[in-house]
Nucleic acid binder design. Sequence first.
RNA 1: GUGGGUGUAGCUCAGUUGGCAGAGCACCAGGUUGUGGCCCUGGGUGUCGUGGGUUCAAGCCCCAUCACUCACCCCA
Length: 418
Amino acid sequence: MIQLIRGFKDILPAEVALWQHIERTAVALFAAFGFDEIRVPIMEKTELFARGIGEDTDIVEKEMYTLEDRGGERLTLRPEATASIVRAYIQHKLYADDPLRKLYTIGPMFRRERPQKGRYRQFYQIDVEAFGMAGPYIDAQMIHMLHLFFQRLGVSRSLAHLNSLGCPVCRPRFREALSGLLAQVEEKLCADCRRRQARNPLRVLDCKVPTCREAVADAPAIVDYLCDDCRQHFNSVTESLARLGVPFELNKRLVRGLDYYTRTTFEIQTDLLGAQSAVAGGGRYDGLVETLGGPATPAIGFAVGFDRLVEILGQRLKVEAPKPALFIAALGEKARREAFYWCAALAAAGIYVEMEHGDKSLKAQMKRADRLGAARVLIVGEAELASGKANLRDMATKAQSEIALDGVAEKLEQTLKP
RNA sequence: GUGGGUGUAGCUCAGUUGGCAGAGCACCAGGUUGUGGCCCUGGGUGUCGUGGGUUCAAGCCCCAUCACUCACCCCA
């Protein structure tokens, strides 16, 4: 048997209702905040991600699905959506009409990691981006919207973690101070952190090895090194969140793995997913549009881990399968033929009807009608075809009435119309 | 990429010292010659993940491999 690719997943009919529910909730909420949907390809030139996400990140270094197409071009299945949306924003000059653009997209992403709970090689994200707004209000609005989204879905046990990574003015100062401390405690750091120390010292801060945590316990906090502009921006964001009633927690260890982030970064964390605590995350990336060849444009975005959300909600939220308004129990080939056309007519009229296609006993057909939760059953056999009248049974009350077969589809449509 | 755990029926899982492949639920049929749920009776629906090896004999022991899973790592 051919099995699906490791780390990939089928979303079976039983789960799809929940996926659609989440999607509808998102779409309605985002629309109210003025976000438009954009759909971008799942494959891009490798260079886009290398430049956008950063050559030194784990994603680009070892997790991308990259291939050479028949023309020798290097292509990559997208590991995230931001780079594509930024590319589209630049390529189609979406800033020309109005530099302020609020966009979202929903779709699959690909990263070749070792699968585990809440982590797949093809996974889905709801990705939201806002371009052209430099001020702190959009930061607060995004986190507020995310909060409302989770609230509407009934996600409990989750909290927004918040930090600021500064800007090209103040981050180097912090980096230097941090490097100074790391040099002092180098012997206590794990091998990974010693490697990080040189290339990306900020990452040492979110190492989970206890000895590392201890070693950097009194490391300087980046929020203490922010320049005046960044400090003011960050204060304003936290004030707005407080006033909007969004619960959050400052987390000076919140460092994110993509190079493009500046200033505000945030994550929604939960303890319901084992080691995968982040169910949504994002931040400001004021330099990315320019890096990718567009005009200098401030921007901020976040992504929600769709699969993780499904996992959190899965146990709790049950969406009922639709039940047929009618089941036609047909006995004999002639009756089945008529039933087939009645079903077709009713479905065309928007009424959900089921029938039995095999040569089954009435008892078996009644059983199936019951299992499907059909409200009524139309029973038609040789005798009914001959007399021109069939029985219509109400499954709840067991009451049965006669219905003339002449123009029966139209009559049923009237009776069953919601 | 590293480490641990698990793979037996559609699902959840038993399977002793190596000796005929099992249970519950689900499903199908019948009890009722044309009427659902409850009940009764009957039916196992299986490449014991896969491929080798040891053995008279392997679901069980050995090797390899694949998948799932948890953790590291990373992130959504």
